[in-house]
Design a protein around this nucleic acid. Structure first.
Lengths: 172, 172
DNA sequence: TTGGAAAGTCAACAAGGCTGTCCTATCAAG
DNA sequence: CTTGATAGGACAGCCTTGTTGACTTTCCAA
């Protein structure tokens, strides 16, 4: 404990960044940063009687129009019942359209309406503003490291999912 | 929109990392990573009928023994009523001690009991394991970038708080 | 001695997780 | 054509953790 500074040193490699203290700093940074990260869209949502869960649904439907309820479920990692409550209000409020599946009529393919697109844009823009500022202040190298650590922190299956979904459908 | 790749380029600086697409990737990485980040302690907590809020209280009391309820409130950013509910169960269960303040007898100074220290250690160790692996896999440079971006993302007041609280009380 | 800060408590409410159960529509295989 | 499995939806009820608002007690400092 006294010599935690010298813990686990390998050939010529300085592992000071792996001390418990450094890890704790990272843990706290995650907590504070995530709180800020969600704060901006939360304020917009509060006015509209929506919550974070609605934002998440809008985000992933926007990113992959036509995705099924089951896929969305998998991405969000919540129960069907929990998602359904959120989805129902979004559909009632005409932000999301649920269309019968093309290949399989049991499935429902989810799309944003114009209203949905517009709210999604408003929410994600608020989030991007903060992200953009942070990125700019930190610089490209820091951003690369940021992304690397976050990826390394994910559960393996989530990471695969995340890495697989690189594409956003372009307007063409 | 077509030429988003060339958006905002300055003298010799490549700002590709600031495209909306890159920002979106970062936003999603935060979502997925944070979910993983909280998953490990959440599992331990579920068994004990505690929640994330209990963990957070334990964490910050451990980090700064003797801090007052008001300070803790400020750090956590929740209401007195919300914290109080959590704090009460922790005190009832003999994980936290609330002592009348020394300088100001209105204040309550919070300390972990041995039981509290032991649970805190268990929880934070679970979180550190993941963090340590991620750090190791990403390397020191990535970690530096990670921390830089997270700090840049915080609200200014939070960031000051965060930067000010570098020290953990050493066993002496 | 008195105003105000710190702390605590009660009540009520909402979001968004969860489990469990049940139902319908549909597909696919036998 | 039946039958089992899958996709989706709905309802009920529970929990945690956040919120507001109102009120009390304690106690410091002017």
């Amino acid at each position: 404990m006294r010599d935690k500074a010298r813990a686990q040193t390998t050939v010529g490699e300085d592992l000071l960044f792996l001390t418990d203290d450094q890890l704790r700093r990272g843990i706290e940074a995650m907590f504070f940063a995530y709180r800020a990260f969600t704060a901006d869209p939360d304020m917009i949502l509060a006015d509209l009687d929506y919550g974070r869960a609605h934002h998440r649904a809008l985000h992933f439907i926007n990113r992959e129009p036509g995705l099924t309820v089951t896929s969305l479920l998998a991405v969000l990692g919540v129960t069907k019942q929990s998602l359904n409550r959120v989805l129902r209000t979004l559909i009632e409020d005409d932000l999301v359209q649920s269309r019968v599946g093309i290949r399989d009529r049991r499935e429902r393919q989810l799309h944003l309406t114009e209203k949905g697109v517009s709210l999604e844009r408003r929410l994600s823009e608020a989030q991007r503003v903060r992200m953009r500022t942070a990125y700019r202040n930190a610089g490209p190298q820091a951003v690369a490291g940021f992304r690397q650590v976050l990826e390394a922190m994910m559960d393996p299956e989530t990471r695969s999912q995340y890495q697989a979904m690189k594409d956003l459908p372009e307007e063409r």
